[in-house]
């Protein structure tokens, strides 16, 4: 949606939702749309785990935001 509005965007999914994200991209006409995958689940992760996942996700998002 962000891309369609001309806004550089990066999707982040947890590993349990990778196939759901691929399916949604396909039905929205954007098959193969790249996104970042992080570990699942989130809700039971401690603060340290969350911080580390966030750091890795931010690094992985960067190339998605600056390439077409």
């Amino acid at each position: 949606m962000g891309e369609q509005a001309g806004l550089p965007s990066a999707g982040i999914m947890t590993s349990a939702f990778v196939d759901a994200a691929e399916l949604m991209a396909r039905v929205l006409g954007a098959e193969g749309y790249p996104f970042v995958t992080i570990e699942h689940p989130m809700a039971s992760a401690g603060p340290g785990e969350l911080h580390e996942r966030g750091r890795r996700a931010a690094e992985a998002c960067l190339p998605l935001l600056v390439t077409g």
């Binding site: 939702f17 196939d19 759901a20 399916l23 949604m24 039905v27």
Partner: peptide
């Protein structure tokens, strides 16, 4: 709506 278990239906 493609609401199939494992597809849209999670």
């Amino acid at each position: 709506f493609d609401v199939r278990p494992g597809g849209i239906d999670r």
